[in-house]
Nucleic acid binder design. Sequence first.
DNA 1: TCGAAGTCTGACATCAGTGTGAAGGTCAAG
DNA 2: CTTGACCTTCACACTGATGTCAGACTTCGA
Lengths: 123, 123
Amino acid sequence: MRIGELSRRTGVPTRLLRYYEEQHLLHPDRSGNGYRSYPESAVARVQQIRGLLDSGLTTEMIRAILPYLCGPDALVPDPGSVPPETAALLQGHIDRIQSRIDCLARNRDRLAAYLAVVRPGGR
Amino acid sequence: MRIGELSRRTGVPTRLLRYYEEQHLLHPDRSGNGYRSYPESAVARVQQIRGLLDSGLTTEMIRAILPYLCGPDALVPDPGSVPPETAALLQGHIDRIQSRIDCLARNRDRLAAYLAVVRPGGR
DNA sequence: TCGAAGTCTGACATCAGTGTGAAGGTCAAG
DNA sequence: CTTGACCTTCACACTGATGTCAGACTTCGA
C-alpha cells in the first residue's frame, strides 16, 4: 500500500509517516517509481507507534523497544541468541515504563479521590 | 526558601523553576529585594511536577490538574462549590491518564513476555 | 570594603514532534 | 495529450521543554 492509503487508514498525516521512517520506526520499501510501499502490517505498526507517542514516549525509546513488541511474534529468537546486555537494556525500559505507570496511577487515584468527595452522587 | 536552595533540594535547575513559574505551576512570592521566596511545601510540589513531566504530561495538563492533587487536602471544598463542568473536565483528564496507563501497561506486558521467553531462568 | 556567590531579567540555542508549502515526477482517466 | 490526484524531496516555521550566557543587582563572609 502507498503512503496515502496508510495515512487514511491510520489517520496519521503523510508528513509524520515520512518522519517516522526518518526515525527508523518504519521501513517501507520502494516500488520502481520511488513510491513508498507499505505492507498490510504497517497499519498496526503505525497505530502502535502513535499510542506510544501519545503516551509520552520519545521516538528514541520507541525505536529501542519496537522490535520486541511487534506482532504475535512467531519470530521469537531462541534464548541464548539474545545477549544478556540486550536483556538488561530491555529490563531497564520496562522499569522506566513501570515508573511512569506508577506515577500516573498515583495521580489518577488522587484526582479520582478528589472527584469522589466533590461529586458524591456523581456519575 | 530561595530558588537556589529549592534547586539543590529537588535537583531541578533554577532555569526550570523559573520556567514552571512562568507556566503558572509555581507561585513563589517575592521578598523585598525581588528574590523569589518559596514555602517549604514547594519541595513536594516541584517533585510532583517533575514526576508528571517525566511521565509525559505537558505543563498545560499539569496546570489543569495540579490544584486537585496537591497536599493531603484539608482544603476540600464543599460539594456544590465545584461546578459540574469542572468535574467533567477533571473526569476527562482522568480518562486521558487512564488511556496512557493502559497503553503503557499493555506494552510493558509485551516486553515482559518477550523477555520471559528469551531469558527463561533470568533474574 | 572587596570579592565571591546568589539572584534577577532577557535573549538566543537546541531538540523532538509537527505543520506547511514549493517544485517537480508518475499515473490513470477523460 | 492534458488534467488532476498522488507521490517525491527539501526547506522553513512553530511549540514545549530545556540549556546557556550576559549584564546588573544583592548579600554575605574574609
